[in-house]
Nucleic acid binder design. Structure first.
Length: 565
DNA sequence: GTAGGGTTAG
């Protein structure tokens, strides 16, 4: 954010104290007014509506029609309650239709109604229609309030209009249209983070700290979480220290976000310190915390430690859930203890957990990775008997397993079965299938799959082509591979390190080391950093041609770049 | 129960 914006924020929030005072005064007097008014109010004949009969959207629409027919008609508050009940069911278009009927039949509409309508447009990604409703406010003699603007800001973010959201926020401050509140700030911070502008959100937060406005714990959590996801874990730690310093108490979500960030980088010492800090702040670990720890330990291959954490969970009366089991199943699979993974899945029912299709998928994957495809297949067949449906992920896992084991015919049969079961193949499915076809040298079929993908609206990605190019190179079809490779930019695809490695290795194996060297330079020009593997491949190629001095040159270059063997 | 935010894991 720019300097002028920062000054603006400081000015707006520095002036806040006065505003609060007058506000509370007027609040006081208006409640007096209400009291006296209530005492004298005659019995109100407008009907009260019982909304407890609404169980689905049809009930709501039925009730709405009845309300329209009632005489005297229920007041606008009742209509607003009805609209809200439809919004809660996430039926935004229905809400808008109902609003339209309200308008046509002349039922009364107030600023609450209009805010509900704007919210629906925003949630349908039509923030432009939301802005159009602003006109209705003025036409009906209402003024948009802070809720209106918060909703519109959220709508702009939902529509990826980050700049416009910022502009609206700044306009709000500059023109003093309404006093921004905590929801405004959270909407801004959350929107910026989700749009990938973590540092802008961070700057905004730090700026607000300097004013009389106190960002709440949720706002801090959002930024800390986003910093961790963007690998700025130390900045997140610092922000955590700052919030404590400012008297904002971190909660379990703050710590879990922070722990996740630290675990992602294997910073176990910091993890330990943070858990101690949590204890000092009397914040007890919940199932999320334990899952973060179990998952990170398993991913790092520390399955024994993960199992210990799993035991502690139960001692602390925090029951493991399906996510915990997934992490443990993966961990056991990783270290080759597939039988323990199986035992865990089998023990789930006894722990009051019904294994989900995801749990089965993980175990099937574990069997495949441990070269027990027969077991995997048996389990795969058991799934429907357990009352669970296979999804695209489990099919992909099984396909991958079968092809990996060289069982190509069965893989193809499974692919057909999948379609018969109305499970729609995705990009991963096609890439897996292509891999199978290439491994079994069915290149004609592989190329026709490329066309099928296009027909199905599944855009081939860089993985698709690297599978094909890899298969072609492995079968000595370097020329075809090279043509595919050269055609990538025209398809809008940027070759990655993997593809360069495949093609450079193949060139070296064919003795075309000069071309390989040329590609290395091309790769650098395109901004793709060469790996040590690429250097090794080229050096090896040079050595087989007895070009010792040049091999030495590349070895030196590799060392200068800090790449080691 | 008349309107707006909503942060963490597979």
């Amino acid at each position: 954010m720019r300097v002028s914006t920062m000054a603006l924020i400081c000015r707006r929030f520095a002036a806040k104290k006065r505003g609060t005072f007058t506000q509370s005064l007027s609040l006081f007097s208006s409640s007096f007014h209400d009291l006296s008014h209530n005492n004298n109010r005659p019995f109100s004949p407008t009907p009260r509506i019982d909304f407890s009969c609404i169980h689905g959207v049809d009930d709501a629409v039925f009730l709405f029609r009845e309300m329209l027919r009632m005489r005297p008609q229920p007041c606008v508050v009742e209509f607003n309650k009805l609209l809200t009940s439809i919004v809660k069911m996430k039926k935004y278009s229905v809400t808008l239709n109902v609003f339209d009927e309200m308008r046509q039949s002349g039922a009364s509409v107030d600023e609450y109604t209009l805010n509900i309508v704007i919210n629906c447009y925003c949630l349908l990604n039509r923030v432009d229609f939301g802005f159009a409703i602003l006109g209705s406010f003025f036409k009906r003699g209402y003024e948009p309030n802070i809720i209106t603007f918060n909703t519109l800001i959220k709508g702009l973010f939902l529509d990826d209009k980050v700049i416009e959201a910022e502009k609206l926020f700044i306009k709000l401050l500059a023109l003093g249209l309404c006093e921004p509140n905590e929801a405004t700030i959270l909407t801004m911070v959350n929107g910026l983070c989700k749009a990938g502008h973590t540092l802008t959100a961070y700057d905004l937060l730090r700026l607000l700290e300097k004013t009389s406005f106190k960002p709440d714990v949720q706002t801090y959590n959002t930024v800390i979480n986003s910093l961790c996801k963007d690998r700025m874990v130390d900045d997140a730690l610092q922000l955590l220290a700052t919030m404590i310093d400012k008297g904002i108490a971190p909660n379990i979500v703050t710590y879990n976000s922070m722990l996740q960030g630290l675990c992602n980088f294997g910073r176990w010492k910091d993890v330990k310190d943070l858990i101690i800090e949590m204890a000092d702040h009397k914040i007890s670990l919940n199932v999320f915390t334990f899952n973060i720890l179990v998952d990170a330990l398993c991913k790092d291959g520390m399955v024994k430690e993960a199992k210990d954490v799993f035991e502690i969970m139960m001692q602390k009366n925090v029951p493991p859930n399906s996510v915990t089991c997934n992490a443990m199943i993966d961990g056991y699979s990783l270290v080759g203890q597939i039988d323990k993974a199986r035992k865990l899945l089998d023990s789930m029912s006894g722990r009051g957990l019904k294994p989900s299709i995801i749990n089965y998928g993980r175990l099937i994957n574990g069997y495949c990775k441990n070269e027990k495809v027969e077991e995997a297949w048996r389990l795969f067949l058991e799934v429907p008997q357990k009352g669970l449906d296979h999804n695209v992920v489990t099919y992909n896992i099984m396909l991958h397993g079968l092809f990996g084991a060289g069982r190509f015919a069965e893989g193809l049969k499974l692919f057909k079965d999948m379609q018969a079961q109305q499970v729609i193949p995705n990009l991963v499915t096609y890439n897996t299938l292509l891999n199978g076809l290439c491994m079994s040298k069915q290149f004609a079929d592989a190329f026709s799959i490329l066309h099928v993908m296009e027909d199905q609206g599944v855009n081939p990605n860089i993985v698709t082509y690297s599978v094909l190019i890899h298969g072609l190179c492995k079968d000595g079809k370097l020329e075809t591979a090279r043509n595919l490779f050269n055609g990538l930019p025209s398809k809008g695809l940027q070759p990655n390190v993997q593809i360069y490695t495949i093609i450079i290795r193949s060139l070296c194996q064919e003795g075309l080391v000069d071309e390989a060297k040329f590609l290395l330079r091309e790769m650098e020009k395109s901004g793709c950093a060469p790996s040590s593997l690429i250097y090794e491949v080229i050096i090896k190629g040079l050595l087989t041609r007895n070009e010792l001095s040049e091999a030495k040159t590349f070895l030196d270059e590799m060392c200068i770049r800090g790449l080691s063997t």
